[in-house]
Design a protein around this nucleic acid. Structure first.
Length: 562
DNA sequence: TCGTAGATACCGCGACAAAT
DNA sequence: ATTTGTCGCGGTATCTACGA
């Protein structure tokens, strides 16, 4: 038997290095070679630790050399697929180099010839003339992965309908995989139900150990040496606690009971990210009048969905919940027509924001973003999971120290923690009390004794808010405050919105103020934006809500205004 | 007719191994 | 030890289908 012969050979030579003169049946082992020149003579030397598997259609040699990147890509397709051909290439690029999509197209055709995958040409958005090549794994391909040890024996093929909604969900997944690949801090692993995928290029611990050819007509049995994907339950459990994990909400009773089925759920260290891909057809509150006709009767409205997130947040109080509404834009279909869909985003934020400001559970955050922002969004959120309150304080201190250092600024700023706020005789609104910190400023050289803790001595208050791009509650709060500003209630209060990066700040859909409306324009004098990545580079800039930089002298004016 | 994306044919390069 | 044919592979050019 071929299988036993290979096993024997691998036992004898576990490193998989064979000299070219050895004649093995069907050229079982093959090592890549380095070419060297030695006195004009061509020399070939065998390079250790480079491995590949060749799949042959017949013994005359036609076939496909499988290397690590192909296995990883095919395994991800098996566990999380289907993907479009382009998306699959993006996954492949995490592991290997590939110059053009044409070459990749050829590869997919080859895998299709081997009957490892099947291709479906789908017409989406016929009016735009868009065609997509959906790639799905076949039973045969799944068997190949199982036999070579790249996926767990229990793994099932994920069947999903094809459509722009599916493309959107997969695109979010591709983005998340890239976020893991690009950020060392995330540990370089992506965990599914049964499998731990090494994603990072920095992770060199997981490597296949042997090289051999795999014949379709004479299948190779499971080989212990390359079963590096098969993990024990304990290993999987520990990985789920530490790395970004894909959660199957359909199989979890908590979700089933509520009737909540997010399109995808990522878990990262006690944070659940529920992804809802929104194709723009669903209305916020009212069901469409033609619902019965077009079969939308069962479709829940977005309002109902958000209320279900309230329920799940209360049901799982030990987790932080992030409901992420991802709006499809044309970037799914072609990179040429990027569109922000800001109007739809604003409408959803308005609607959801009203719900949140009333009675949202504290462990629920709702965000609305466009698909093209998904990668940056998950990058900042995953990284912020690793941050602590200390990080927030660090940012506040950076802002305060800068202002206190300025000789033009005649006040002392102090951070007041939530616990101490009630001791201060400051006029704080219930909403402000919800913030963990408040910045109050006093005239310089004033000694803060007990009797001086009075409103009359506080020059003004700054409510600092750590904002993440897309965050609906912040958006609602700003709207809420802006109404109060209009009523002149908060004379001495300003908002400081601290973003992780300038890109986050620029891309966030905040509030559009109608021009020439003086009352509305009050918000310009109340809100200050601060992108922290710039500050870390000693670029101490504040911005107005119109995204324009505020100079040092303007800042003084800004703070001084009532 | 146009633009897009996948499929296909073909070419040259390098690796390999059989033939000499 | 050298020559020669075969194959994988990436790249290019050109084909197709398709809807606007």
């Amino acid at each position: 038997m071929l299988t036993s012969k290979i096993k024997m050979l691998m036992k004898e030579n576990p490193e998989g290095i064979f000299s070219r003169t050895e004649r093995l049946p069907f050229s079982i082992l093959r090592a890549k070679k380095n070419k060297k020149t030695n006195g004009g003579q061509k020399m070939t030397t065998l390079k250790k630790q480079e491995f590949e598997i060749k799949v042959l259609q017949n013994r005359n040699g036609k076939g496909f050399y499988f290397t690590d990147p192909y296995f990883y890509t095919l395994a991800l397709l098996g566990v999380d697929g289907p993907f479009t051909q382009q998306q699959l290439l993006d996954i492949y690029k995490i592991y290997g180099d590939m110059a053009t999509d044409k070459s990749w197209s050829k590869k997919v055709v080859k895998m299709s010839d081997l009957k490892f995958v099947s291709q479906k040409n789908i017409n989406i958005r016929k009016r735009d003339g868009m065609q997509f090549n959906f790639v799905e794994i076949t039973e045969n391909g799944m068997d190949f992965l199982k036999e070579t040890g790249f996926v767990n024996k229990a793994a099932k093929i994920r069947n999903n309908s094809t459509g722009d909604h599916t493309i959107g969900i997969r695109q979010v997944l591709v983005d998340v995989l890239n976020v893991i690949a690009e950020n060392k801090e995330l540990g370089g692993k992506y965990v599914t139900q049964n499998t731990i995928f090494p994603i990072s290029k920095y992770d060199t611990t997981e490597k296949p150990l042997n090289v051999y050819r795999f014949y379709q007509d004479e299948k190779l049995g499971v080989n212990d040496n390359i079963r590096f994907f098969n993990k024990t339950k304990e290993e999987i459990v520990s990985a789920k606690a530490n790395f970004v994990t894909s959660l199957n909400s359909y199989a979890t009773s908590n979700f089933k009971d509520i009737g909540l089925f997010p399109d995808w759920v990522f878990q990262f260290k006690k944070n659940l990210f529920h992804v809802e891909v929104d194709s723009g057809k669903q209305s916020f509150e009212k069901k469409s009048e033609t619902a019965d006709v077009v079969g939308e009767a069962k479709q829940t409205t977005i309002k109902q969905k958000v209320e279900k997130y309230f329920e799940i947040a209360e049901k799982l109080p030990n987790h932080k919940h992030h409901a992420v509404f991802v709006l499809l834009d044309d970037s799914v279909t072609t990179k040429k027509y990027f569109g922000n869909r800001t109007t739809r985003i604003r409408n959803l934020k308005d609607g959801i924001g009203e719900l949140l400001i009333k009675d949202a559970p504290a462990n629920l955050k709702v965000s609305v973003i466009s698909l093209e922002r998904a990668k940056d969004f998950f990058s900042t959120y995953f990284l912020s999971v690793l941050e602590t309150e200390k990080e927030d304080l660090k940012r506040l201190n950076a802002a305060i120290n800068f202002m206190n250092r300025s000789s033009m600024y005649p006040y002392d700023m102090k951070i007041i923690k939530k616990d101490n706020m009630k001791d201060w005789d400051v006029e704080v609104n219930k909403d402000i009390m919800k913030t963990p910190f408040l910045i109050s400023s006093f005239y310089k050289n004033l000694k803060l004794k007990e009797e001086q803790k009075k409103l009359s001595l506080v020059h003004h208050n700054i409510v600092p808010i750590m904002v993440k791009e897309g965050d609906v509650l912040t958006y609602a709060k700003i709207n809420h405050y802006s109404k109060m500003f209009r009523e002149q209630v908060f004379k001495k209060t300003k908002l400081l919105l601290i973003y992780d990066t300038k890109k986050n700040m620029e891309q966030d859909v905040l509030h559009t103020v109608p021009k020439r409306n003086k009352l509305e324009n009050l918000i310009y004098q109340k809100v200050l934006l601060m992108p922290f990545d710039e500050w870390e580079k000693s670029n101490h800039n504040f911005y107005g809500i119109d995204q324009k930089a505020i100079s040092a002298s303007d800042l003084l004016d800004f703070l001084d205004k009532e």
